[in-house]
Amino acid sequence: MLLHDLTIENYRSFAKYKLSNLARVNLLVGDNNCGKTSVLEAVALLASEGDMGALLRTLELREDIESIPIPGGPAYHTVYDGRSLFHFGEVAQDYDELTPIHFFSSGNDHRNLKIRVQAPTASEPAELVFTLNGSTSSSIRMDGHGRLVGPWISGMRWTPQGQESTPMFVFVPAGGLTSYDLSGLWQALLKSSREHIAIQVMRVLHEGITGIVFSPATEHRRDVLIEINGERDTLARYGAGTSSLLSIAIAIASIRNGCLLIDEIDTGLHYLRLSDMWRMVLKTAAELDVQVFATTHSLDCIRALAEAVENEPALADEVAIFRIDRRFEEAVHFGGDALSVIVNHEIEVR
């Protein structure tokens, strides 16, 4: 899958918004609360082909969840706020005021995903319905408060990461995936003998890295061992940059023909490492046919991307920067071929 463009309608803060001329690797910039993460979510939902699990995953990453105690017991239901997905959803008085969400892309691999609310009937509760390319792909129950409820087991959180051997997308939040999520993805990499790809990416930070070991039932960083020049030490002893890069490394190696979404890609990484990080991301994304959408606030991160392209000019077509600004209907596009002018002329893309 390679999206050439993306249109978002009625999703969160966007009434209608378009990104044109998407590249293999897309860096999203813009002010706080401009909607960068919403764009990542839209790509994830489109990439997931209308999988309800993807939607719940995005809500979980936002921690837009609520625990409702079940009467008479210690157990509780986890519910997700469904109304906040819709543009002006928080002020909607009734189901029919929730204007359907629409994501679509044109081109060879065009996709069309609609998310609408099916109002309740006398016998059926309200439902959030996903329609992909015209056919219903999944649905989920919605209560009278607009909350998404069930059918998952009481108290269990929805964590689909790592459950599939090659996920269609992985969403890496700022600061990285949880050790639990990483462990799931790592098991899948081991099964498909692709762990060497992740190790290769990790060499950006640790040249001598030879192995990564996840203990069974990994929950914390101390359950992850990094082997450098034959010495093993737990991930907990390394800095935030190593954890962040491990998320990127494992995520990109896991996906085939899908999308990698990375919120704040430069988190924890020294500026001198960023260019190598981009080089590895660009190379690996091309090899595995992965489309990357990442966000940043960092000028160093943009400069490093320019440096990676300058060292390998053939990559210029593989890169684009987009400034997200809700005041306009379309994201401002900077092509990879303009990166050297942007950096040398000190043009502010953010």
Partner: peptide, 19 residues
């Protein structure tokens, strides 16, 4: 101030996009 005519020609497609 940039550096010469070519740098201005190169600048034209991009700088207007600044926020």
């Amino acid at each position: 101030a940039l550096q010469g005519k070519q740098s201005l020609l190169d600048d034209m497609p991009e700088r207007w996009k600044e926020s």
